[in-house]
Computed example of a mutant assay.
Amino acid sequence: MSESPILPVRGRPVRPSGRHRRPVPSQLPPEAPALVLAALGDASGAAAELAALIRVDNPQIQVRLAGLDEEAKRLTAELESAARERPEGVTAAIVVPLLTGPHPVADRLIAAAVASSRVAVTVTGPLGPHPLLAEALHIRLAEKGLARADRMRLVNVSSPVDAVVLATVGGERAAAEAQPTAVLLASRLTLPVLVASLDSAPPVAAAAERLRAIGAARIALSPCVVGPEAPDGLVAATAAEAGAEYAEVLGAHDLIADLAARAYGSILSAD
């Protein structure tokens, strides 16, 4: 008589760790705050695609999207609408700016909308710095042939470029706060990475010249922007002026959607 097979012991599921851990609980109460994405411009294009990605991956979240017009009226309206659907005394919304770093105009508009709405709201910080942001930048570079698609370094394979300029939008403060992301990206690429600004100091052309002074011949521009915050053509024009090749903006990358959901989830877990 053959032995009975050993059946597995049913236990608690193993909770994934690191980047694979769910950024938001799989179930939320009906009164859970809405996730309101705030994007410069009319909230079309990449912003709308990111909202759709978050909805698909997190159906338990009510995801709203508001463009930041000159008076932030659309964001005010979204906050007021979210509050009407929830009991009094609870946080009606968590506003997540679709920005990789601080942005004076967006920050001012969001603050004005929150004040005007008179709604209980929490506003998160920008999406960076974060290792997932550096990973998304790496992927965009690889898509244009400006970086290897993986992180393995083989001594007999030359790097596609000699150095990278990580470019921000939002003034000098945004450039300063992107330094940790630059360090993370440099670690992934094992290449020099300097931070510059597309709309302020330090300028991209000056950063490219610094890199050439240390022997970098082929330089890549890595725009650390989601997209709506940079005027059309700005990245291409800046790269041409600096004599650099360039990656596409981050846009509706799934890692950016993940970062937005994580920002929302971090507020929930802190309560």
Rank of each mutant, 00 (worst) to 15 (best):
L221M: 03
A112I: 02
A142R: 01
A32M: 12
A220R: 05
A167N: 06
T168L: 06
L53P: 05
I110L: 05
A142Y: 01
C224T: 11
A134I: 12
E85L: 14
G18I: 00
S4A: 15
L184V: 06
P192R: 07
V169P: 09
D258Y: 15
R84D: 11
P13M: 10
T190A: 14
V225I: 12
G125S: 11
P16R: 14
G18S: 04
V235F: 07
E135I: 14
L194N: 06
A186P: 09
P203S: 12
S26F: 06
A112R: 10
A206K: 13
E70H: 14
G89H: 07
R10T: 15
D199T: 09
V249N: 10
I214F: 07
G101D: 12
T238Y: 07
A196I: 06
V165T: 06
H253V: 02
L37R: 03
E135F: 15
Q27L: 10
V24P: 04
L133R: 11
A34T: 05
E172Y: 10
G265R: 03
P202M: 07
E177L: 14
R12V: 15
E70D: 13
L234K: 12
R210W: 04
L185P: 01
P231E: 11
A182G: 12
I6L: 15
A175N: 02
G41V: 07
K144I: 09
P30E: 14
I110F: 04
I54L: 04
P228V: 02
R148M: 12
A216R: 10
L234I: 15
R218W: 03
V63K: 00
A178Q: 03
P97R: 03
N58A: 09
P129E: 07
S200G: 04
D57F: 02
K144V: 14
H253N: 11
P87F: 08
E209A: 08
L109E: 06
G128K: 02
P8G: 07
G215I: 08
S197Q: 00
L268K: 00
E172V: 11
L28S: 00
L146M: 04
E3G: 11
A174N: 00
A93W: 04
H130L: 05
A38G: 04
L154M: 10
I6K: 14
R21Q: 15
V63W: 00
P97Q: 00
